[in-house]
């Protein structure tokens, strides 16, 4: 063992420099040529405010498309899922309460139209997306609150629906933040 101690210590220090240092700096350098300089893509909206395009936000007011429930209330400095088991009675009661709340705020919607994602918490607690179905089920409410034509909202949803990657891979998504920014712009 004795003649392995010194090489072990020296090799560890070399690895600290090579993998911890040089590799990291190489990736950092590459990141500088990306449009956002490796700091995360941002999206600006009124009054010089901005936010991160890919980090979901809490939307729970009736005049916006709601985002999904979040176990951490969209705290982007502490991501987490609910980690509730599928048979946990407290959890099932919580989902039932979310369904009831949704039906109160969306009287035109029938229970079997509510997509599961609108009453279940996402894995990160920061899910920025909805499926088209989950956006469309909210159209009647928003049209009523904002006094807009439903067809106009459906067209907006279609315009903001992102196709599966390369057209064939994975689900269709809608970025809720972008959709809601566009919704505000629609009124003006």
């Amino acid at each position: 063992m004795k003649n392995h101690i010194l090489p072990a210590i020296l090799l560890t220090l070399c690895c600290v420099v090579f993998f911890g240092g040089i590799y990291t700096l190489a990736i950092w350098t590459v990141a500088q040529v990306t449009p956002n300089h490796g700091e995360g893509e941002t999206l600006a909206y009124g009054d010089n405010r901005y936010s991160f395009e890919r980090v979901g936000q809490a939307f729970n007011r009736d005049n916006y498309f709601w985002s999904r429930p979040s176990a951490v209330n969209y705290n982007a400095a502490g991501s987490a899922g609910s980690n509730k088991g599928p048979s946990n009675p407290d959890y099932l009661a919580q989902v039932q309460a979310r369904i009831d709340t949704f039906l109160i705020h969306n009287p035109a919607v029938k229970k079997e139209q509510i997509p599961a994602e609108l009453v279940t918490a996402s894995g990160s607690g920061l899910d920025p997306h909805l499926s088209p179905a989950a956006a469309k089920v909210q159209v009647a409410r928003i049209a009523h609150v904002r006094k807009l034509d439903e067809q106009k909202l459906i067209a907006l949803i279609d315009a903001y629906t992102e196709a599966p990657a390369l057209g064939i891979l994975g689900p269709e998504t809608i970025n809720v933040l972008k959709l809601n920014i566009a919704l505000d712009a629609l009124e003006r």
């Binding site: 599928p86 229970k111 079997e112 599961a116 279940t120 996402s122 997306h129 909805l130 994975g170």
Partner: peptide, 29 residues
């Protein structure tokens, strides 16, 4: 999807979404 949520009568056509992200969906997860 989660059979307990199916009995509540909601639309689980996207699968069991608790703890999952919309952009990946249930199959890729």
């Amino acid at each position: 999807g989660n059979p307990s949520l199916t009995t509540m009568g909601i639309d689980q056509s996207a699968g069991s979404m608790e703890g999952k992200e919309v952009r990946f969906g249930s199959a890729a997860s």
